[in-house]
Write a protein that binds this DNA or RNA. Sequence first.
DNA 1: GCCAACGTTGGC
DNA 2: GCCAACGTTGGC
Length: 162
Amino acid sequence: MAYWLFKSEPDSYSFADLMGEADKTTGWSGVRNFQARNFLRDAIQVGDGVLFYHSSVTPAAIVGIAEVVKAGHPDPTAFDPGTDYHDPKSDPAKPTWFQVSIKAVRPIDPPLDLPRLKTVPELAGMELLRKGSRLSVQPVSDAEWKTILSLAGGKATKSRKG
DNA sequence: GCCAACGTTGGC
DNA sequence: GCCAACGTTGGC
């Protein structure tokens, strides 16, 4: 069991969009960075936890929690000339780009915005907070995950009363 | 809109 | 393999 943070610009895909999917599930397609691709292809497993982060908005913030429901598999948008993510160099027999599927667990409301996260000593080493960090799929340590869930008022996934 | 930081490309 | 040029990310 591992933890991750996925960035998305909400104008292109938001946590609300994920909540609005029929099964609250989507394929995390469109990642075109090799380091992020390697996490998607090799490291991320079913059951892993995902922090859903909105970038390029003010304030940028962690806005929801999701879980991985399908491990790495080829990103279909790479083969689709009709999308911005088409990569003619990616051979379907040996795909270059991968995605995982994630399912919404719950929103974080109010969101944990970047200025707030920067004040939390336990998160000082977080990749997200590193100056110049651009990685759109990044690992989150167990301790960071725990800290963030406690800031979010959550009780680590399953023990909330209805 | 600005610009620092970063990843990728391509000439050599 | 080096590295300058370029395009992109993303906070502000």
